[in-house]
């Protein structure tokens, strides 16, 4: 995985004798613009809207730093090309053969596949679907993309904040693997929900009642009662953000010290 990302970022060692100036320039030119694809499955488009809220870096990002080679409304192509990285937004509907096929093809043609947003990462609110709705009453079963293909990296959130998206983009461009490591680990976190706080934190004698989960909850499904999170299941969309944001689920000490200059 690490080697793959490094390769994607053009960090792989190159034999010295081949590294003529022309070659280096060619590589720099090719590698400077990673070829990005965007696959939109079953989701609300909120994730890419959140991405587009990075007004200050968006123009620079799209003009000079990456090349969008595939994506509905983003690139005028029918055939899916080879891609360095594909962002997948939305969960995949098992009854929708086009979605399944597109996801499979994306996995085949992309070096790295990122589950972008909670629908792709955990299934999020599409987990509640039981079919029986127009326009496709038989569209019933929605699963996180990790159930069908190998996910290299997950960026959960409903939607992920504009800031985390910017941080991920910067980390990818700088080859900052330390920053991305938690997201590589999160690729395996596909069954999420507010009840994780009870099972994985409170039941495990780790909760300290700091309130970070309730602050992070994007649907106000959480409140704090007697110093512990209380879940209103009717509001929970199963995005996983509460557990991911909890200081007792995983602890990125080195990054925090670095960010604070300590």
């Amino acid at each position: 995985m690490l080697a793959k990302i490094k390769q994607f970022l053009g960090m792989e060692a190159k034999p010295k004798e081949l590294a003529s100036k022309e070659e280096v320039e060619k590589v720099a030119e090719e590698k400077a613009k990673p070829r990005i694809g965007y696959v939109h499955l079953s989701g609300c488009t909120g994730d890419i809207m959140s991405l587009s809220e990075n007004y200050d870096i968006l123009a620079e990002l799209l003009t000079n730093m990456v090349e969008i080679v595939y994506g509905q409304t983003l690139a005028d192509v029918w055939e899916m090309p080879e891609m360095d990285l594909v962002l997948v937004e939305g969960s995949v509907c098992l009854q929708d053969e086009h979605s399944v096929k597109e996801l499979m093809e994306a996995r085949e043609k992309a070096g790295l596949l990122v589950a972008f947003g909670s629908c792709a990462a955990t299934g999020c609110f599409t987990r509640y679907s039981r079919g029986g709705q127009q326009a496709q009453p038989n569209h019933e079963s929605f699963v996180p993309v990790g159930d069908l293909v190998k996910v290299d990296c997950a960026v959960p959130g409903c939607p992920p904040s504009p800031e985390i998206i910017a941080k991920v983009v910067v980390a990818v461009i700088n080859g900052d693997m330390d920053y991305l490591q938690p997201m590589i680990d999160l690729a395996g976190y596909t069954e999420a929900g507010g009840s994780d706080l009870q099972y994985k934190i409170v039941n495990q004698a780790l909760c300290i009642g700091c309130g970070t989960c309730a602050m992070a909850c994007q649907t106000r499904a959480l409140s704090m009662t007697n110093g512990r999170p209380e879940l209103n299941e009717d509001r929970c969309v199963k995005c996983g953000v509460c557990y991911i944001q909890c200081p007792r689920s995983w602890w990125p000490a080195d990054r925090i010290n670095k960010d604070l200059g300590l």
């Binding site: 960026v155 959130g157 992920p160 941080k167 938690p182 992070a216 953000v241 991911i244 990125p252």
Partner: peptide
């Protein structure tokens, strides 16, 4: 942690 990794905190 939220400042370094603001997944859902906009």
């Amino acid at each position: 942690k939220m400042q370094s990794y603001p997944f859902g905190v906009r």
